[in-house]
Design a protein around this nucleic acid. Sequence first.
DNA 1: TCATTAGTACAAGTATATTGAACTATTGAA
DNA 2: TTCAATAGTTCAATATACTTGTACTAATGA
Lengths: 106, 106
Amino acid sequence: MVSFVHPAKEDLNLPNILAALADPMRIRILLSLLAEAGCMSCSQAAPCPDMAKSTLSHHFRILREAGLIRTTKKGVENQNTVRFEDVDERFPGLLKTVLKLAAAEA
Amino acid sequence: MVSFVHPAKEDLNLPNILAALADPMRIRILLSLLAEAGCMSCSQAAPCPDMAKSTLSHHFRILREAGLIRTTKKGVENQNTVRFEDVDERFPGLLKTVLKLAAAEA
DNA sequence: TCATTAGTACAAGTATATTGAACTATTGAA
DNA sequence: TTCAATAGTTCAATATACTTGTACTAATGA
């Protein structure tokens, strides 16, 4: 059985979050998740279909352990959502600012 | 003769900037530079005196090549300033948001 | 001219990212 | 039930990036 590590809201940590946001692939995953305004499986959310599954899994783990997404197992897939409110409460404005700029660049 | 690489304002690039901001030591260097509201040598700006000179030089180079600081040689020292306006024009709000949150954490 | 100071450059070791292969869990169909 | 297919994870190996010591350069001042 796979169980996912999700830090509590109060344990969100700025260096971890910034490190997670520092990878263009992970930014694109977050934008993709937000564009669908809800849950997506890892494969759906992946904006780069030719990337190795294991690499993708690694990126989702980084996002999850930084507290940027929440992952739950639904059947054979995972459902991922952005923890926007949690992150915004702890670090107001950060996610909105970074993702807005990233979306504008893309 | 050492000459420094400074990207033009229009070449500032979000992934590079986020990657540069993803290291706590580099965040502390930026905060230290801004706290003095101006120029500082590398050694002055370094918030961690027991770090190897070469490591420090490496961090200043990352910041410089991401376009976050400008370095000029003044005598035997370097003078470093944060390129706040350039970065803010290209990526409005980013630097202010990140550094404010980082300062609040520290 | 020579010692000192501030920093850079390079090479070596150490840490992190990427990938393929093997594995687990769930589903759905025979 | 059993079996194949699907979606992800884990692990081990390789590739890339960070850290540091040593050697070097450039400027200053005695």
